[in-house]
């Protein structure tokens, strides 16, 4: 039996790189989106703020799988835009979706930094950018770490949806395996779970560490 498990794992691992590569790039993309959108929502520019709020609410308020289908099926037809491969469609959809969620983490962490920090920076005549870069962000980042850890685990799990737009990730190979070995369905899916969990382990470790850093934090 044990041999069978290893066989299944080996089979599934053909999809591991797709899952991991989509996860890594989508996570990076969502971090970037989170900072762009999070900072934009704090901007004094009304238009920028409104536009960003629109983006965040749309992507938070609709389902990721529908967004994925939209980007994959609808957008190329409607606007004649080619997003490249379905790998890119997956990365972009996941990145935009989680970027919207995480922008709220960025925004609220920045807002939670004591107003006195901004006032002291103004009194020292730091520019707006320097205030953010030298004083607010270094403190806010610590607060963001645990939430970013959580979201990165969610992003990893979210990548399983790309099997629905024809990408051969772990879940895709799990489906294939099951359909040719029907009696082994339960064990195949169990192995899929194991596989995701193994990939998530370092992320779990990282977010624990992030939590510790945040808790140590910075007492004034």
């Amino acid at each position: 039996m044990f041999e069978n498990w290893v066989n299944i794992l080996t089979y599934l691992s053909q999809g591991a790189w797709t899952t991991i590569s989509i996860f890594l790039v989508a996570a990076l993309f969502s971090f970037i989106m989170a900072f762009i959108a999070g900072l934009s929502r704090l901007s004094t520019n009304l238009l920028l703020r409104g536009f960003t709020a629109f983006y965040v609410e749309i992507f938070r308020g609709t389902s990721l799988i529908v967004q994925l289908f939209w980007l994959y099926y609808a957008v190329p037809m409607l606007f004649n835009i080619d997003l490249g491969s379905n790998w890119w469609v997956g990365v972009i959809a996941i990145g935009l979706n989680y970027g919207a969620y995480m922008s709220e983490v960025v925004r609220s962490s920045i807002l939670s930094i004591n107003k006195g920090q901004t006032e002291a920076s103004i009194a020292l005549n730091l520019s707006r950018f320097q205030r953010m870069r030298q004083v607010i962000l270094p403190q806010a980042l610590r607060l963001m770490l645990p939430e970013f850890g959580n979201y990165s685990i969610q992003i990893l799990k979210g990548t399983a949806l790309v099997s629905l737009i024809g990408l051969s990730d772990i879940l895709y190979y799990g489906d294939i395996y099951r359909s040719s070995n029907l009696s082994e369905g339960p064990i195949a899916y169990f192995m899929v779970l194991i596989m995701y969990f193994i990939i998530a382990l370092p992320l779990i470790w990282l977010s624990k560490k992030g939590e510790k850093i945040a808790r140590k934090g910075v007492a004034s």
């Binding site: 002291a120 020292l124 730091l126 030298q134 403190q139 004034s220």
Partner: peptide, 28 residues
């Protein structure tokens, strides 16, 4: 030309006290 000291200090907690003084000199 204006400086201020606050009731609640408002030191930068993520910097050493030397860096609290060095950073504005270097940046501003």
């Amino acid at each position: 030309d204006i400086g201020m000291v606050f009731q609640h200090f408002n030191l930068f907690p993520h910097k050493t006290i030397l860096d609290n003084c060095v950073m504005p000199l270097v940046k501003v």
